[in-house]
């Protein structure tokens, strides 16, 4: 418990489960007012109950980030409830496994791109004007190590996540001078429902842990700590940056 986000209002898009849930709890512990935004309303309610044990200043809003009117509503509801927006964390994303390129269906491509990339564009587009009204803020986008390295199990996911990294750079170039810091966290393998669901079996995750330099995969709380740092004033000179949080997996060396 601290005060590193005391009085700040944070929107957590994708806040219902996994890293989003851990971030909501971590932010609340540091004094933030938290809006949990997700299309998974059941998950959001569970997270809200956990956050409410820490602070009364928390709420949920239902949103599909790929729909502009719903995103606008998410920001409006936050301002109505808490009066402002200081921090936006974009955690909403889906990972669908796809076959190799030739066999990828257009609708798979669209679903992944719409949530992961267009959704991040939409939430930034809606939140930035409100942040500018109170003199600035911080945006933290969540990419994936699949956005840095080739990962054959879902080309659309890879591309959406590299898009998030570059979107972060460009938005930072446009809004840092107006007081909005924009950064990106790139998690490696982390034990979330998404990761468990998308590896298709629990055994796959256990095997990934065995090959990891730390002998385990990441915990959602460990990503939440990086998000907290970037959202807080401690990162006041950090903008346009990409923080890889993968426990050194990328440094393990390739088997040539």
């Amino acid at each position: 418990m601290g005060d590193r986000l005391a009085g700040k209002v944070a929107i957590l898009a994708g806040g219902a489960t996994g890293m989003g849930r851990s971030t909501a709890i971590r932010f609340a512990e540091e004094g933030a007012k938290v809006m949990i935004a997700d299309r998974n309303v059941y998950g959001a309610q569970e997270t809200l109950a956990m956050v409410k044990k820490i602070t009364p200043d928390a709420d949920i809003v239902s949103v599909d980030v790929s729909k502009w009117d719903q995103v606008q509503n998410m920001v409006d509801a936050t301002v109505e409830r808490f009066g402002r927006v200081d921090v936006l964390v974009n955690l909403a994303a889906i990972l669908m496994l796809t076959p190799p390129l030739v066999d990828i269906e257009e609708r798979q491509w669209d679903l992944i791109m719409d949530t992961n990339l267009k959704g991040t564009f939409f939430t930034c587009k809606a939140a930035i004007p409100v942040m500018l009204k109170n003199g600035g803020g911080a945006i933290v986008n969540i990419s994936s190590s699949a956005g840095l390295d080739a990962w054959t199990r879902s080309l659309p996911y890879n591309i959406s996540k590299v898009g998030v990294i570059h979107l972060t750079s460009v938005i930072s170039g446009q809004y840092t001078s107006q007081g909005i810091r924009v950064n990106c966290v790139v998690p490696g393998p982390v034990d979330t429902p998404q990761a468990r669901g998308s590896t298709q079996s629990s055994q796959t995750l256990e095997e990934a842990a065995l090959e990891h330099p730390m002998g385990r995969i990441g915990r959602p709380e460990e990503i939440a700590n990086a998000i907290l740092f970037l959202a807080s004033d401690e990162a006041s000179f950090v903008s346009g940056a990409t923080y890889v949080v993968d426990g050194g997996a990328r440094t393990a060396g390739r088997r040539l």
Binding site: M214, R219, V238, V244, V245, G247, G248
Partner: peptide
């Protein structure tokens, strides 16, 4: 959970 990384500030 961070190792091997270069952080730009």
């Amino acid at each position: 959970y961070i190792s091997g990384e270069t952080i730009i500030v």
